[in-house]
């Protein structure tokens, strides 16, 4: 057997972050915001502020015209960003700007396949890496359709994070366990982002099933709206993922208070998780 000389470049930040948290007996708090929403100027300060409030990993949404898997809150955020003309180049620029002051917090870009294919996988991979991106979640690139993506991202050292859901079969759990990088995003509800309530008992049994197949950390998202739920989820998973709730907080805040209100929300969630 020939030993391959070139190993995939390890996307260090995500793995290191989870290892460090594990050593500290802490769980990761992962937040999602859409790049350039509600204003272009808010994104980088918001990212730093979230880190200060105890966020461990930031998922930054790439705006898309047809976000099929999102509920109304994230749809609106995508529409607002597109109305401001936020492009892929802007998304990279925000990440590069953030990296000037933060070289440890992992950033995962989350979006849909079309804008990435349009740019070209190679160009996307190179530019994302150069900006300081650590991972990607492409909602409509399931493992079966993303061989090229995986190959391209492995080559530049960007983790491809895949999703699993309550309806995922044993075969699909195995497949994602085999190809997944960084962490696994467990979608805790049947439905779209921002949907109602989460059943933590169901989550616990699903996470156990996935854990049996992989050593990757497991993040749980969809339907986590407060500290209490976050705490119960963090008892059974490695990471708590919150998106719609943060965007809602910004929607109901005045522009000046948006960051402060998001921080207050995240402080309470972090405190509940660490209690």
């Amino acid at each position: 057997m020939i030993q391959t000389e070139v190993k995939p470049i390890v996307a260090a930040r995500i793995g290191e972050k989870f290892a460090r948290l594990k050593a500290q007996h802490k769980k990761a708090l992962v937040t999602f915001v859409t790049a350039g929403d509600p204003t272009r100027e808010i994104t980088v300060p918001l990212m730093h502020a979230m880190v200060k409030s105890g966020v461990d990993v930031i998922e930054l949404g790439i705006p898309f015209s047809d976000p099929m898997a999102e509920g109304p809150v994230i749809q609106r955020s995508s529409e607002r960003a597109l109305a401001l003309g936020v492009s892929m180049a802007d998304v990279f620029a925000y990440v590069a700007e953030f990296r000037k002051a933060d070289s440890v917090t992992p950033i995962v870009l989350m979006g849909y396949a079309n804008p990435i294919e349009r740019m070209g996988l190679n160009v996307f991979g190179d530019r994302a890496k150069a900006a300081g991106v650590d991972g990607v979640i492409i909602v409509d690139y399931p493992p079966e359709e993303s061989h090229e993506l995986l190959k391209t991202m492995d080559a530049v050292g960007i983790d491809v994070v895949y999703l699993l859901s309550p309806t995922s079969t044993a075969e699909r759990i195995e497949m994602v366990a085999n190809v997944g990088r960084g962490y696994i995003y467990y979608v805790s509800l049947k439905g779209v982002t921002g949907a109602a309530n989460i059943d933590t008992d169901e989550v616990a049994s699903a996470v156990a099933k996935i854990k049996a197949k992989t050593n990757l950390p497991i993040g749980v998202g969809f339907g986590i709206r407060d500290g209490e739920t976050a705490r119960r989820v963090s008892d059974v998973a490695d990471a708590v993922i919150i998106g719609s709730r943060i965007i809602q907080e910004m929607e109901k805040s005045s522009p000046d208070a948006a960051i402060k209100n998001v921080q207050t929300l995240l402080h309470s969630i972090r405190a509940a998780m660490d209690a």
Binding site: M68, Y141, P142, E144, E145, L163, S168, V187, G191
Partner: peptide, 14 residues
Amino acid sequence: GGVFVAETLQAALL
């Protein structure tokens, strides 16, 4: 063609 959908729909399509 293909099946470019989120994980949540995979089981239903199968």
